[in-house]
Nucleic acid binder design. Structure first.
Length: 251
DNA sequence: CATCTGATGTGCT
DNA sequence: GCACATCAGATGA
């Protein structure tokens, strides 16, 4: 029966829709959901101690929490991740076992946050997993709590006032960093112990609701097309959907 | 919808 | 010097 229940949940996601002009619609839906009626449980060290691909899939559905200095808490459900496997993976910062000042967090214990800057102006957030130099990139989050603050952060960073739809707040690795105020200072912090940033257990995602496909923005020979990107099927907050992978996946 | 382009600056060869 | 795990705006179909 859990399978049936989760199917229903997947359908509900399709219905949370274009009424985002009103702003708070989505937030109300999720706040009243089963997750928010239950205890918010922080994920502990053991959770992160698994192989990179397993961790990337396990992240789907979990809740990222950011506690700001003023006490505001931001919450969102992880809906899209990518695996970077380590030495063998030609697309990884740790390819060939390379260690630099920038990427040391990739070699730290599973659950360690790796934040790096890209294109001079953006950040990306990863979490190290089991395996030497292996880490998971967070690519998209479904915002749950603190949407107004997220919108403010995103507008400040973009230096424009154009109103953002809910789905535009965190649907990309650097967008979610802006929305959650994730910066270089979080690099090498431990997601299992940090006071400002952690993960809480969210509703479990069924394997059949996970789409696996090629990573985004990669051109590294045979590693370009390996299915190392994972996202929740039919979720509106994913950055880039892969229709071919969705239809071939299953019924 | 798809494809292109400029912004921007750090890390690494 | 140049590549870069990106984003936003513009353009054409």
């Amino acid at each position: 029966m859990p399978a049936k229940r989760r199917r229903v949940q997947a359908q509900e996601e399709e219905e949370t829709d274009e009424k985002e002009a009103s702003g708070m619609k989505n937030e109300n839906d999720l706040v009243s959901s089963k997750y928010f009626q239950s205890k918010k449980m922080r994920l502990l060290s053991d959770f992160y101690n698994k192989p990179c691909i397993d961790l990337a899939k396990s992240f789907l559905g979990q809740i990222l929490v950011r506690r700001l200095p003023d006490g505001t808490e931001l919450r969102g459900r992880i809906v899209e991740t990518e695996s970077y496997l380590g030495g063998e993976d030609e697309a990884s910062h740790s390819r060939g076992g390379k260690r630099t000042e920038r990427n040391v967090a990739m070699y730290m214990k599973p659950g360690t946050i790796y934040v790096y800057q890209i294109y001079g102006m953006y950040f990306c957030m990863n979490v190290s997993s089991q395996g030497d130099g292996a880490a998971v990139l967070l690519r998209s989050i479904e915002p749950i709590e603190g949407l107004d603050t997220m919108r403010k952060f995103r507008n400040v960073k973009r230096n424009v006032q154009k109103p953002l739809k809910d789905k535009e707040l965190c649907n990309g690795p650097s967008k979610l960093c802006q929305a959650f105020a994730i910066e270089k200072s979080l690099d090498r912090q431990d997601l299992a112990n940090d006071q400002s940033t952690w993960l809480e257990a969210g509703p479990e995602i069924l394997e059949e609701d996970i789409v696996s496909c090629a990573r985004i923005g990669i051109s590294a020979g045979e590693w370009t097309h390996k299915p190392l990107r994972f996202y929740i099927k039919n979720n509106k907050f994913v950055s880039v959907r892969n229709k071919a992978a969705e239809t071939s996946a299953n019924t």
